[in-house]
Design a protein around this nucleic acid. Structure first.
Lengths: 336, 336
DNA sequence: CAGAGTTTTGCACGCGCGAGCAAAAACTTC
DNA sequence: GAAGTTTTTGCTCGCGCGTGCAAAACTCTG
């Protein structure tokens, strides 16, 4: 047993032998709240360091039925906000002991294949950070394979088998609408993203309803179909180019910053107009780019850190009922 | 054995029993190149579907010592190019059967802790997609724990224990330098990123050397210290604001697009000058934003797809000697 | 249809660790 | 120092599957 190949990674047995204790004492020495005497813990640690030992998480997961792995399913890599979310999620999850499986579902028809993979890896939870997962696909996927937990992050989900962690879109958009009214804009257009999922409609519906409630007149809207700035650019161009001046909006309320940034570019470079003097623009997310002097984007900042903390609570098994009630704040810059 | 709880995921044994074959036949039916008769394969598949069975990748990894897992270590989430790379890597790796562990090393002192995690999960390889991993830290980390393969993606690495997959920075920057000369610029400044790692110096050194070789005069340079557009903005402002007109550069050659974009904003909004008429700007990477009409960034596009294919070859165990020889192309837009 | 060649199937053993309990050791108290 | 209490240690069994080999079942040829 003591003839280990050089470089071959040591097992708990090797450490135990070297330290003169049993394998289980070694295991305990590496567990946080286990009962080991300080003396043998030190012996173990010394031997472990000598052998370059670290517990095998695979074997541990198999034996304990807890993988400390979380799958992040992402289907949209053109929205820069995803990078912000990925950074926060990976960093904070890691701090709490979870590793992260990044699953690109861009080329899948629906989420089921990705969820299958995740379940085959025995993840403790799968987190959807996507835009296009539709409720029907989710239901199918969920039926196919058992996942311990299915969370939807930064988007509302109507599926009762999922736990949704997002800010209160209704309140947020009401606030934005009020801001637009207060600033005296008369002719808004709401630019919406993908509308496949009922959840996506909240921001749009809220704005339209609030606007009509306050002014008595319906607000115009248009569906971009994706959260890609380039797509938003083309869409805005098609939507506005060639319009009479009196038909042009005085403010574009966008479902998020990715759309807003594309729209601003189109306003300037296709229409030759100024932001905000001719057309103002409001976004949602507060991506890093939003503070670029180019855009000076007025937008809405979700409390991402708090939301991730909520997610971690759920992973830990704590009951939380307030997961769709997070409130952010309007960030007023120069674009509206 | 046949009394499985509803919802509990089935094992190969359960499927075997239902299909009337042995467990190993079940296993083989799920393996690509295994020898199973079509008849029993169908029996197995039918039973598997009925039970909702899929092989447990954890147990499989443990038994076979192959995890089909790759760890991606990232320490820089402000550069939008990372999102492009993550998308390509995750999608193409998945297509070839690898899942991806995303490890955020932003808060680590060096890469060792992250590499440790990766090795504890028995990844088949760890891929560094970072900017700040220094060679010394790598060496330490490598000594501490055995990793099957350590790859460095999109950056040259001098460490002999790593495999670096990147484009030929020397050739690329020579091409850019030639372009700058051809366009008749007289006073370039090279804006460099983090200079902690010897590998990062290649682009800078190449430009400076080529410039001096061609003109007989040294070129100015300045170190931004990170690949964050906002940092580049501030740095460019500090560097150029208040200079006499004759001391201003006529072109900024940037180590990558993240820096270039920050620089363009600073030129416009801090110095009140025009790009490219007053100061031209060249980037590197061709991030999605580079084609925004705001930036129209002249830049260099690395052949990412081919590079990822090279990475996959290495993962498959194929020998490739040309991994630092990929050639991209200059993308000429309006900024220079 | 025998014998050789080929394909398919079954099995013993092990991957590295964890839960939960029982034995052993250490510590208290009177 | 005996008896009771608490802490620490050791151990059996199992997590679900893969490897490599040998037995069994086919296929083919003359």
């Amino acid at each position: 047993m003591s003839t280990k190949q050089i470089g071959a990674s040591a097992t708990a047995d090797d450490v135990a032998e070297l330290a003169g204790v049993s394998r289980w004492t070694v295991t305990r020495a590496f567990k946080k709240d286990a009962s080991v005497s300080e003396k043998s813990r030190l012996k173990v640690m010394k031997a472990a360091e000598q052998l370059g030992y670290a517990p095998d998480l695979l074997a541990s997961s198999l034996a304990s039925d807890r993988s400390n792995l979380v799958a992040l399913l992402v289907d949209d890599f053109s929205n820069p906000h995803k990078l912000v979310m990925l950074e926060k999620l990976t960093r904070l999850l890691r701090k709490e002991g979870w590793d992260t499986l990044l699953v690109n579902t861009l080329s899948e028809d629906d989420a089921s294949v990705a969820l299958m993979t995740a379940s085959q890896r025995r993840v403790d939870a799968a987190v959807l950070i996507g835009s296009r997962f539709d409720d029907k696909g989710l239901a199918t996927a969920l039926g196919a394979r058992r996942l311990r937990k299915l969370l939807v992050f930064a988007r509302y989900s109507a599926n009762p088998n999922t736990i949704s962690i997002c800010c209160d879109d209704h309140a947020a958009m009401s606030e934005i609408c009020q801001y637009v009214l207060d600033k005296g804009y008369k002719h808004p257009i709401f630019l919406a993203g993908p509308q496949t999922v009922s959840a996506h409609v909240i921001r749009k519906e809220t704005f339209l309803k609030n606007w009509e409630g306050a002014t008595g007149r319906p607000a115009e809207f248009s569906d971009v179909g994706s959260y890609d700035p380039n797509a938003a650019y083309l869409h805005t161009k098609d939507l506005l180019l060639g319009r009479e001046e009196r038909d042009l909006p005085d403010v574009l309320v966008c479902e998020n910053d990715a759309i807003a940034i594309g729209a601003i570019d189109a306003i300037r470079f296709e229409l030759g107009l100024r932001v905000p003097q001719d057309i103002a623009v409001i976004g949602f997310d507060d991506v890093p780019q939003a503070q670029s002097p180019n855009y000076q984007l007025t937008t809405y900042r979700q409390p991402l850190d708090i939301m991730v903390a909520g997610l971690i609570d759920v992973l830990k098994g704590e009951d939380r009922q307030d997961l769709a009630q997070f409130h952010g704040e309007i960030v007023v810059r120069n674009s509206a």
